[in-house]
């Protein structure tokens, strides 16, 4: 069996006010997986991400990255290899030019300057924003800031990239851009975790879904398993994805043969409809 890239064992985290943030989280993440993390507000998704990144220190439990248990000493290794793209780009952008901003992570990794410059250029080219290099972040639009915040993480060459509710506050065009970037990243076998409230997106994109509820993982499985499990959906206040709903209704009315094809995108659905007519 393949060794998981990241394992979390019995992770407990308590907030300063005594409230439990995480309550015994266990999970194995394999290399190259596309994972959607869903759950209602305050279910512990962001707390989980910050714990996994070593920013928040867990009360109990361990994090194992590529076979090594993370302690205080090798915390930096964890941060180097796991990057978080924060929900609000304005909470992430710290420098006053795009160049300095994207270079912030690599500079902190104490890389030689030539390497930093190379990585910054690569990351900006990757996100298609090379001509923003000298612009200050306060004259960028929301979508442009998001691109910069993703370039930040790409420049660090993290193996696991975490996106905290990336589609929030993006217009449809920018959301499409984001999905293209995700597509590009998954072709490079990056491991990705995305927290989202958009079940349609999760159904379409993810290979695996983790459902958080009150600091616990209540379900972990393929999108189909999760979204057909009414118990889980009810507990975490989620709805079924539109396409799954439509497909099941069609099957129920016997308009479509029950072949368990389960189209995941509009394109697949259209193809299925074409095939039967």
């Amino acid at each position: 069996m393949k060794q998981p890239i990241l394992s979390v064992r019995d992770l407990h985290y308590v907030y300063g006010n005594g409230q439990a943030g995480l309550d015994g989280v266990n999970i194995d993440i394999n290399e190259g997986e596309k994972i959607a993390v869903i759950g209602s507000n305050g279910a512990g998704k962001s707390t989980f991400f910050l714990n996994v990144n070593g920013v928040l220190k867990a009360e109990r439990g361990e994090i194992i990255y590529r076979g090594t248990t993370i302690t205080r000493k090798n915390l930096k290794e964890l941060r180097k290899n796991i990057g978080i793209v924060f929900q609000d780009a304005d909470n992430q952008i710290i420098a006053s030019t795009v160049r300095a901003e994207v270079g912030f992570g690599p500079m902190n990794l104490k890389l030689p300057k030539e390497e930093v410059i190379k990585r910054v250029d690569e990351a900006l080219t990757y996100m298609n924003i090379l001509d923003f290099k000298d612009r200050p972040p306060h004259y960028l639009s929301g979508g442009e800031k998001k691109k910069v915040s993703i370039a930040d993480i790409i420049a660090m060459k993290s193996e696991i990239i975490i996106f905290d509710e990336p589609t929030v506050a993006l217009d449809p065009l920018n959301a499409e851009m984001l999905e293209e970037v995700l597509e590009k990243l998954s072709r490079e076998e990056k491991t990705m975790l995305i927290s989202t409230h958009d079940v349609d997106f999760a159904y379409r994109w993810a290979e695996r879904i983790i459902v958080f509820c009150q600091g616990k993982i209540i379900a972990d499985g393929s999108p189909l398993e999760i979204f057909q499990n009414e118990e889980v959906l009810k507990q975490s206040n989620l709805k079924q994805p539109m396409l799954l709903n439509v497909y099941e209704s069609l099957v129920q009315k016997q308009l479509v043969a029950d072949e368990k094809t389960y189209p995941r995108s509009i394109e697949e659905f259209q193809k299925m409809i074409q095939a039967i007519s």
Binding site: L50, V55, G83, F86, I94, F104, L109
Partner: peptide, 10 residues
């Protein structure tokens, strides 16, 4: 939040 974001980038 800023501090968290900075820490997560080493």
């Amino acid at each position: 939040v800023y501090y968290d974001a900075m820490e997560s980038r080493c």
